[in-house]
Amino acid sequence: MRTGVYPGTFDPVTLGHMDIIRRGAKLVDRLVIGVTTNPSKNAMFTVDERMAMMKREVADVSGEIHVVGFDSLLMDFAEREGAGMILRGLRGGGDFEYEFQMVGMNQQLNNRIETVFLMADVALQPIASRWVKEIAMFGGDIHKFVPPGVNADVIARVEQIGRKGS
């Protein structure tokens, strides 16, 4: 059974993430979506909230998909999940530079697991979770960037923590 891991913070889940998930699920028998933390990012949602959001959003995606939280090195997580592939989405050149360095480090940690890149759909390439959060915090409309359920989650969270610029 071919298993792939698609890791990320998914804070929040975007249409770009969903595009990569739908396409990536076709490449493997089992896709594990690894929801993690990143100390350099300011999270809007907890890991448990992001996992619940992701589970809801992938419920209608074809294929065997599992949503799992992790707080370890990616390669250790991938090994524990029995993955032979790390799936990563690319939006442009800036992503490539970052991912290129990460692949080199990951290969040093475990060269049995390959990294596969999928280019985001051209219409979705500008979307980034950090921009979605910023637009929402300033009262902007994010419905073009996230699934409807995530849109409602983000709006509710912004109302809870307070909008900037008001």
Rank of each mutant, 00 (worst) to 15 (best):
M1C: 00
M1Q: 07
Y6K: 02
Y6G: 01
G8K: 08
G8W: 06
T9N: 05
F10R: 08
F10I: 06
D11E: 08
L15H: 06
G16Y: 04
D19P: 09
I20N: 07
I21M: 12
I21N: 05
I21Q: 07
R22W: 06
R23W: 09
G24C: 11
K26H: 10
K26V: 10
L27A: 12
V28A: 10
R30Y: 13
L31A: 11
I33F: 10
V35R: 07
T37H: 08
T37C: 02
K41T: 03
K41Y: 04
K41H: 06
N42E: 15
N42C: 01
A43T: 08
M44S: 05
V47K: 13
V47E: 10
V47Y: 02
E49H: 10
A52V: 01
A52N: 14
M54L: 15
K55F: 00
R56E: 15
A59G: 00
A59Y: 00
D60W: 01
D60C: 01
V61R: 06
V61Q: 06
G63T: 10
E64C: 11
E64R: 15
I65C: 08
V67M: 04
V68P: 00
S72F: 01
S72L: 11
L73T: 04
F77E: 11
F77Y: 14
A78G: 10
A78F: 11
A78N: 09
E79K: 15
R80M: 14
R80Y: 07
G82S: 09
G82R: 11
A83F: 11
A83H: 11
G84L: 05
M85W: 11
M85D: 00
R91S: 01
G92L: 03
G93N: 12
G93K: 03
G94D: 11
D95V: 07
D95H: 07
D95T: 08
D95K: 03
Y98G: 01
Y98L: 06
E99C: 08
E99F: 05
E99L: 07
Q101I: 09
G104C: 02
M105R: 02
M105E: 00
L109G: 02
N111G: 10
I113V: 14
I113E: 07
E114G: 02
V116Q: 09
F117E: 03
F117Y: 15
A120T: 15
D121Y: 01
D121A: 14
A123L: 12
A123G: 11
L124N: 09
L124P: 04
P126Y: 09
P126H: 06
P126I: 03
P126N: 04
I127L: 05
A128E: 01
S129P: 02
R130Y: 05
W131V: 12
K133L: 03
A136V: 07
A136Y: 08
F138P: 02
F138E: 01
D141Y: 07
H143S: 15
K144A: 15
P147I: 07
A152P: 00
V154N: 04
I155L: 13
Q160T: 14
Q160E: 15
Q160H: 14
I161R: 09
G162V: 10
K164T: 05
K164Y: 14
S166G: 12
S166Y: 03
